[in-house]
Nucleic acid binder design. Structure first.
Lengths: 341, 341
DNA sequence: TTGAAAGCGCTACCAG
DNA sequence: CTGGTAGCGCTTTCAA
C-alpha cells in the first residue's frame, strides 16, 4: 500500500494552515456565499499552492452517488468495440461520469463476473454487449431488481431492455441483393451462433433477399458456428470444397470476413472472379486486402453516442424502454463484381 | 440523478433489521472473532438476502487508499494499445485494483488533460504511453512531486522514470539485416516524429545494420513525419516516385506499414519482386495482405505484464528506477524475398 | 459476546 | 461572515 505516497491535502489541512474552520474552506472553494473576499482569496491561493484536489470518494459517500458507469464488451482488443468504448468514454466524461471498462472474454461466465464486479463498484448504470455464448438472461433480470439502468448494444436479446443496434436485417438484405445483382447465384452465409438475435436478424435479411430474387435456399451454404477465426476458416474451406461451391460469401462479422478472405486466398481463388465477398467490418481493415473488400460499414459513432444517451436518460428517471436502430451503409469496393446482364 | 435507483443496503440497514449494532455486523461479515456463531449466521443470511455489497468508496475513505490506477494511451482504438490495456486491466484486477482508462488522442494537451483527470481521481499509480507530440516532460515532473508512481511503456523519454519498451534498436537492426540479406540495397525507413526516442532507437538499429553490411546511407530514404495514415501514404508515394526508388521499406509502426502497403499496391508494384516490406505490427493485420507482410512481432503480453508489475512494485515502496526491455521477434512472411547469392 | 463512538473528507445546516 | 457539528458507510478501539 503505497508506503511513500504522500498523503493528499484535504480541506482540513488547508484550514489548519490558515487557522480557520473546514466549513469556511469548503464554502470558499465551492464558490458559495458567506466568505469575505479577502479570506476567500487566501484560501484559494493556499489550496492551489498545496495542489488540493477534492476527494471524489468522499463526495460519493456524502451524496450516495458514484458518478460511475460500467461498460462490458466481449473483447476490448477488437477494434470495433475499442472504438465504441472510446466514444462512450468521451461522452460519459463530458457528463461527469467515469467509466469502468470490463471485458467478458466473449463468454457467459466472464459476463457474469463483469456484472458482479460492476455491482460491487456501485455503478449507476451499465452499457453492455452480450457474449456470443449468452443463451439466457437471468443475470440481467437480477440487475432489474437492484434498479440499475441497463442498455444493451450490438448484441441484444428480446426482453424489455433498452437497446442500440445496427439495422441488421436491412443491411444483410442490401448486401445480399448487391451480390445477386452482381451476378452471384450461390451465396454462402457466415454467421455467429444461432442463439444470437444478431445472427438471426442478419440471416433473416439474407433469406429475404434470396426470396425476393427468386433464388432457392440451400441450407448447406449457411454456416453458423462460433465467432472466431478458426471457425470462420474451417467453415469457408468446407464451402469451397463443396462439389458445387458458392460464387459469393456474405460474412456477417469482421473476424469471419477476415478468415473467409484468408481461406479463399489459400485456395488460390480469384476475388471477385471466382468468388465475391462482402463483410461486416471497418474501413481500414477492408482496405488492407487486395482486392479491397466490399463491406457493411457500421456507424460506430452513432451506436456509442446513442448507447450513452439512452443510459443517461434512464439514469435520470426515464422509464421508457427504447430500441434504437442505427443505419449501416454498404460500401462498394472491388471484391464484388457488377455484371450487367 | 438516478431518481429511482434503489438505495443500496448498508451494514446499518442489516443491523437495523436484526436490531443489533453495526460493529457486530462488520465483524461478522469480515469473519472477525467476537461474534456468536448463531448471530453470525443470521447476519450473513440477511446480508445475502438483501444483496448487500460493501461500499468501496467508504473503504477508500476509511483507509485513504483508492485501489485505483490510471492508464493513458495515445489511441485506445488502435489494436496494439487495446491489447495492452486489456492485459494490464486483467492483472490489476487480480491484485484488487481498478483501472481508469484514458485516451490522450495522441496529443500533448490531451495527455495533460488525462493526467489532470487521473490526479483528480486520486489514482495510486499511472501507466502511460507518451503522445507522439510530447516534446518536454514538465507535466511528468509534477507527478513526481505528488509522489504518484509512474511507469512509461512503448514510448518513453530519457528521464529517470521506469520504463517498459520493446528492444527497438535490436529489432530494427534485425529487420534491416533481413532485408539486406534478401538482396535489398536501397532500404527506406519510415518512422514517427524525430523527437520520439522510439523513432530514434529504431532508426539507430536501421543505420547500424546498413553500416554493418557496408551499405551507404541515403538520407532521402529516411522519412520521419507523423504517425498517421496520410503521412505514411504520401511519404511512401514520394519514395516510389524517386528517380532511383527504394527496393525495400522498413515501416516502423503499424499504421505506417498499412499505408506503405496501400501506396505500393496503388502503384501496381509487386511485393516482394519490385519492393520488399517489413512492418512493426500484429499478426492478424500482417496476415490480411497478399502477400502477407514480414513483421516485427512485439510481445504485447509481456509489455503489459511488466508495466503493471513494475508499477505494483513502485506502489509498494520500491524506489528503484527499472528499465525493462521486452524482446520482439521477426516473423518472416512473403513480403520479403530471400535471395541466395 | 456485543455495543458505543471516533474518524476518513466533505457538505449542509444551525449558531454565534 | 465564520465556526461547529452531524452524517454518508465502514472499521477499529475501547467499554460494558
Amino acid at each position: 500500500m503505497s508506503k511513500k505516497l504522500k498523503k493528499r491535502v484535504s480541506q482540513r489541512d488547508i484550514a489548519k494552515i490558515l487557522g480557520i474552520n473546514v466549513s469556511t474552506v469548503s464554502r470558499a472553494l465551492n464558490g458559495l456565499e458567506g466568505v469575505s473576499p479577502a479570506l476567500r482569496e487566501e484560501i484559494v491561493r493556499v489550496a492551489s499552492d498545496q495542489n488540493y484536489r477534492p476527494n471524489p470518494f468522499a463526495m460519493s459517500l456524502r451524496y450516495d452517488t458514484t458518478r460511475t458507469i460500467g461498460i462490458i464488451v466481449p473483447d476490448m482488443s477488437f477494434s470495433y468495440y475499442a472504438h465504441i468504448v472510446k466514444r462512450i468514454e468521451a461522452d460519459a466524461r463530458e457528463y461527469g461520469f467515469m467509466c469502468i471498462i470490463t471485458d467478458s472474454g466473449d463468454t457467459k461466465n466472464g459476463e457474469i463476473d463483469c456484472l458482479e464486479h460492476l455491482e460491487n463498484m456501485h455503478v449507476e448504470g451499465i452499457i453492455m454487449c452480450l457474449s456470443q455464448e449468452t443463451d439466457e438472461f437471468s443475470h440481467l433480470e437480477r440487475l432489474k431488481n437492484s434498479h440499475i439502468p441497463l442498455v444493451l448494444f450490438d448484441r441484444v436479446n428480446d426482453n424489455d431492455i433498452s437497446t442500440v443496434i445496427n439495422n441488421d436485417v436491412a443491411s444483410a438484405r442490401e448486401a445480399t441483393l448487391h451480390l445477386i445483382d452482381g451476378g452471384a447465384r450461390r451465396i454462402a452465409f457466415l454467421g455467429g451462433p444461432n442463439l444470437m438475435k444478431q445472427t438471426y436478424d442478419r440471416k433473416h435479411g439474407y433469406l429475404e433477399a434470396l426470396r425476393e430474387r427468386g433464388i432457392a435456399i440451400d441450407k448447406d451454404l449457411v454456416k453458423c458456428q462460433s465467432l472466431n477465426f478458426n471457425s470462420g476458416l474451417s467453415d469457408t474451406l468446407e464451402l469451397l470444397n463443396m462439389p458445387e461451391p458458392p460464387d459469393a460469401i456474405l460474412a456477417t462479422h469482421g473476424i469471419l470476413a477476415i478468415s473467409a478472405y484468408q481461406a479463399i486466398i489459400s485456395k488460390k481463388l480469384r476475388i471477385p472472379d471466382d468468388i465475391a465477398i462482402v463483410g461486416f467490418m471497418s474501413d481500414w481493415v477492408s482496405g488492407m486486402t487486395s482486392p479491397r473488400l466490399t463491406f457493411v460499414k457500421q456507424n460506430i459513432k452513432e451506436i456509442g453516442r446513442n448507447a450513452f444517451k439512452v443510459l443517461y436518460e434512464q439514469m435520470n428517471g426515464n422509464d421508457n424502454v427504447q430500441h434504437i436502430i442505427v443505419k449501416a451503409r454498404l460500401e462498394e469496393r472491388e471484391s464484388t463484381k457488377k455484371i450487367y446482364l
